[in-house]
Nucleic acid binder design. Structure first.
Lengths: 220, 220
DNA sequence: ATTTTTTGTTAGTTATATCTAACTTTATTA
DNA sequence: TAATAAAGTTAGATATAACTAACAAAAAAT
């Protein structure tokens, strides 16, 4: 019973939508939307994954990972984030370029390679987006992260990670002149659309609610 | 018209059997044998590859790579050998461990990654098995290599590369105490089975014809 | 409570890539 | 040259994983 790289994509997707999301179960349509596939394809695939004991699922019900599926997901996250770190540090990839290639690299099967890579990188704790890298046993701190949108007028914070790893979003962040560790002050929060006026490094910019929700911060 | 990683395996196999072999065309059965597949599967696949202009082929005829196929093969060889070098130098992989993982890594699609990797490694000319790494333009010196089996009694040589990259063979070479650059003296060549008695670093060993054919040397 | 909307499933098709079994062509040998 | 052996092909089946179209169940709204 070997797991294809396709199945790995499903496992990771379910993990992101459940464990890392706000709910702990996900529907087939929602999963299909996330993966960019038709609900029909997902429906069929989930049935196969159930027979492989990777997911808990009943017809017309919601999907969640089994213990085995959960462990596989964490291993994949670990691989993905270690590769991202490698690409960023040694291959001169910007933080908006790492995701796509790391997505390919995470499917490489070689426990030794991952152990050695982790060691080569000095057992990093965070990836280029500020996300925690699980250790070899799958342990990792689950810090309850606060998004910029939760702050109020006058509060100051430091950018610690991003919710969205897509190139379009990260390019925008970079273009604004923001990066991990940037210190931000909330100058104004508009009641109308929850957009914010923020100040950082002598710059003053207006950002949307959607943007503020995609940025994780640590209040200082 | 995108090329699957499966098709890439066929291209590399044809390259190894033709350009790197003694003939310049190969039959479906021979290719099937090399790839560990049934002749039927290969027959079907080659037809598809012909329609994609990757191979020259006529029914019941022999297979050879087109210009496009040849260029793709060299790119794959370049990727494979750069990854082998990386694994050997930085990930503590022995020369018998690199092949399998490099075979997975060579399918990663990212021209930037390969450029950066090449640069990171200092544009290496040889991989851990002593094979030449093609440069970005696909150029590489094709030295006519001499195998140990071609030497006569009394000749001395230096091990420069190996014909076979399989773990079983490389482990045997290592076990014998041989490695790249080892200096070898041919003490005896048996007419009976062409086995050889060789001397290196104060050791005297008997090796088969098959072994001697799998080792490339430079006469000194 | 019934209709409508949303969500999810099944059936049938397609594409890739493999297999075995049966058949055909080419090459070798008696 | 005719029989045999080797090499190669085709047909039909299987597995994975996707799709569309049609249908069914659950949830929401009237």
């Amino acid at each position: 019973m070997n797991i294809t790289s396709n199945t790995e994509d499903y496992i990771k997707a379910i993990f992101h939508l459940t464990f890392e999301g706000s709910v702990n179960k996900v529907g087939t349509n929602q999963l299909a939307e996330y993966l960019g596939l038709s609900p029909a394809s997902v429906s069929v695939m989930i049935k196969k994954m159930k027979s492989k004991h990777l997911v808990d699922y009943e017809k017309y019900g919601k999907i969640s990972l089994t213990e085995v599926g959960h462990e596989l997901a964490i291993k994949l996250i670990r691989k993905h984030r270690l590769w991202e770190t490698f690409l960023h540090r040694y291959m001169n990839f910007s933080w908006d370029e790492v995701h796509e290639v790391a997505h390919q690299l995470e499917h490489i099967q070689s426990p030794k390679l991952i152990r050695e890579l982790d060691n080569f990188l000095g057992n990093p704790k965070l990836d280029p987006h500020g996300d925690v890298i699980p250790d070899e046993e799958g342990n990792f701190s689950r810090t309850i992260r606060k998004s910029l949108s939760e702050l109020e007028k006058g509060q100051r914070c430091r950018l610690v990670s991003v919710k969205d790893s897509s190139a379009v979003f990260l390019k925008y962040v970079t273009q604004l002149g923001l990066a991990l560790s940037s210190e931000i002050e909330v100058l104004e929060v508009r009641e109308f659309d929850h957009s914010m006026m923020i100040k950082y490094e002598e710059k003053v910019e207006n950002v949307s609610k959607k943007f503020a929700e995609s940025v994780y911060v640590e209040v200082v």
